[in-house]
Amino acid sequence: MNKILSVKNLTKRYRNGITALSNVSMEIEHGEFVAIIGSSGSGKSTLLRCINRLIQPTEGSVEFDGSDICKLSSAELKKIRRKIGMIFQHHNLVNSLTVIQNVLHGRLGYMRTIPAVLGLYSDSDRRKALDLLEQTGLNSFVTQRAGELSGGQQQRVGILRALMQNPMLMLCDEPIASLDPHSAKLVMGLIKQLTVERGITCIVNLHQVEAAVRYATRIIGLDHGNIVFDDTPDKLTDDIIRKIYGGNPHDLIIGGKMHEGTEAQELVS
């Protein structure tokens, strides 16, 4: 029963009057696989980004590892972010660097500036990256340019990058939205493995309700910035799905709508 993340009354209002999140509260426990579902504009992206303060919340608190992220100084924030890994819909790898260089980027938060800038990763770091790549079956791509890999492979590299941070928590923003079904299965399986085998808590934004039901231990449904469902997958009824998505559940299983607009996104460093 140990909490890892405690979100209280999180609200995000933009300058143009749009309220993306309204009084969102949730408590996540160690080792959970939480899927957040909701239609475009429901606030999924905003919620995820408020947790590691990529977006600055207007009100509320986010307690993680003993501190309120919303109140941390810039330097402390960077330290805490090391413990939170994040993967993105578009993988966000540096395409012109090799796969292993991208994976090693996960260690940058722990390294001192000069070695980091010069790319002088320690031998143990390099070995760990190589091991991770082997375990995921990507060891034939080690020195290949990241941009040459397929979408599914790139996403897995992204996960490994986050893993190199030794995170306690993983935030996954629509990780399979741009992937074909087979790659999607590999990626979701990998994320599930993280929770089960390594005890890393994962919060995953998903469009695909079916994937959420199949992999998650807990589902949170968002609608227009409010939580309308927070329970185990078996309690998710068609009625609730209809309320969240405003349509017939069976029409929604196949593939995602576009990524939510993030025009007013503020990157806080």
Binding site: L97, I100, Q101, Y121, T143, Q144, R145
Partner: peptide, 10 residues
């Protein structure tokens, strides 16, 4: 066996 991380040719 020092692990090389760069793409050798490019």
């Amino acid at each position: 066996t020092k692990i090389q991380i760069n793409n050798p040719s490019s």
